[in-house]
Design a protein around this nucleic acid. Sequence first.
RNA 1: GGGCGAUUAGCUCAGUUGGUAGAGCAACUCUUUUACACAGAGAAGGUCACAGGUUCAAGUCCUGUAUCGCCCACCA
Length: 718
Amino acid sequence: MPEKFLKPYDAQASEASIYKTWEESGYFNPDNLPPLQDGSARTEPFSIVLPPPNVTGTLHLGHASMLAVEDILVRYNRMKGKKALWIPGTDSAAIATQSKVEKEIQKSEGKSRHDLGRDELLKRVDAFAEESKTTIVNQVKRMGSSLDWSRYAYTLDDKRYKAVMEAFVRMYDAGLIYRGNRIVNWDPKGQTTISDDEIVHEERTAKLVTFKYSKDFPIAVSTTRLETKVGDTAVAVHPDDARYQEFVGKEYDATFCGVPLHIKIIADKEVDPEFGTGALGVTPAHSQTDWEIADRHNIAARPQVINEYAKMTVEGPLSGKKVLEARETVLEWLKTEGLFIEEKDIQQNVSTAERTGGIIEPLPKLQWFIDVNKPIAERGDKSLKELMREAVASGGVMITPSHFEKIYFHWIENLRDWCISRQIWFGHRIPVWYKGTETYVGIEAPEGEGWGQDQDTLDTWFSSGLWTFSTLGWPEETEDLKTFHPTSVLETGYDILFFWVARMILMSSFLMKEVPFKNVYLHGLVRDGQGRKMSKSLGNIIDPLDMINKYGADAVRLSLIVGAAPGNDIRLDENRIRAYKNFANKVWNITRFVLESAQEADAIVDSPINPADESLIAEAKVMAQEVAKHIDTFRLDLAADAAYQFIWHRFADEVLEESKPLLRGDDKVRAASRAAALLQSLDILLKALHPFMPFVTEEIWKDMPSRKDLLMVEAWPS
RNA sequence: GGGCGAUUAGCUCAGUUGGUAGAGCAACUCUUUUACACAGAGAAGGUCACAGGUUCAAGUCCUGUAUCGCCCACCA
């Protein structure tokens, strides 16, 4: 009996050295895995790419839950004899990282990014990213993650840079990437464009003001954005609206708050005759809808009246004012001029930028877009949108839980061209060069003098979209790519289904001509004991590192798995974690008892076992099969619970108790048979539990008589 | 405005193709030189949100209602 079993299990004392042993064994790398039991080589691949955490971040419970789920899948499939690969990586998180560094520089040196210049700022950001990278990587290891660190990827490293450039050029050559002057979501606070998905709607009360442009203007209109009305070039009414039909087609001039306007009255079916006065003031330059209406009616005049700093650019009383201020000025002006009719409070959704909270200002800008509707000749004239739909509709990508498929399809229906250029510096710079009116698109800078590269960088999700294959070496045709793509599972939170999962399907469908992954497993969000989101302001954040230090990584893993049905949010409180720490100790003491009994009964693994005792081993195997069945259907919660129930309440509470009289009885043969059966059962239990609680099981495995190699590469019991 | 999910023991949740309701945690009683008090034994606890319907039989299927939560959306 090894002495360590005389004391309670001490996770703190084992975990670091166990992880080191795993790492040094080389088994995280599928190329080094031992052959199957029958001596044949592993052939079936199993691969997952880790959703790369932000390079500057620290581990939170969302990460912990993701790592637990993925590590369970990888360890299970490794034990099932597959070539199991889990690829680690970190994400540069362009905007988040740059603004963090900018803030620090502003604070310590009082300088803005423009004072430093592009090169110097990037140097600083890179240094910061490199430095904080080790933090997150070490924290990921603390969870027991069996990631193949030899394949570590960073979104901005050389290989990924090449992949991103190649992807851009290929898509540009296929006509899927274009540059266009269109209304974009401008974030005045972050000073960059953002995509539709980076917008969050906030409900607010707004004043809906009804007014006329001038005394002789025949129609009153209503708006919540009075200041934009100096950019109006039309008024739209519904074609069937009897009230206004006589005016359709007429044009009027007015001077509105010091700005000359020329307004045409048009009929468009988009207008809701029930809302306000049933007439809509059309501001093409500052509203997506209005831009489209202007397109339909060939209205060329689209004056921009608001700039990137959300300030008015018109002459007169509004000149240089911020939009909110200008809104008040216009209201006062309307009242003095006698053009004001009424105002009332309405509930309105305001678009804000997810990252900065800034209120989005729709502006026309020259930006780069991905065309999601263009028929692609080499794909049977299907568009990216259609390819994305097909990937899931055909069953090529299975989403768990399946109801997210509906949400996915609905998102695709509403998908518009994706704006991929960002006005920040940290990221992949757009591989386009300009010289006068000439444009050059290519991986390397063009020959000759006078070319200037596009100042913008790519949306971080553009490069993330390539992640399943850029991490495997694409665009080179590597062995890894052939073996491991499409990946087996993509596991992530349901909150980034659109941001990332959909974009990966888009990129892979076009560039790889195959799906990026066969399964998507969406886990829920981790909430506190009361079901609230964890946030700094609520002070309810549970730091997974604290919990690991207190209860061990195994306990933290299990607490994040049991009770977490796919796609359901999980509530976590410390009591649950403590409960699973007790379970780890239970397994520890079970081992102590079994090893002790075997010693006393002079039993070895190969001792003869009578049929009654054989049935105990069979029972353990049935449990292992049940666990396997649940893992195969992504019900890790049920799998973990099945193992827990069996080990504690069947094996410990019943089997061990019933064994005591036998083990201590006079029939030595019987005692030896039972002890050997317990040894073999424990062997199975440890294997079945290993994916969930890798540390304690591996620690115990060191002293199991049947041990030949690390538990992590043992075959799954069958 | 559209869509999705949830509603089962005090709390957190399971309940797989319809067959007399389960677990963990908490609380209660008893038990400490005998694998483990990070434990064991025992008892207690539920009109399965509500109202209809299908069925021999409904937590499970259908319809509707209510409450909570989430996602999407160009009603200015």
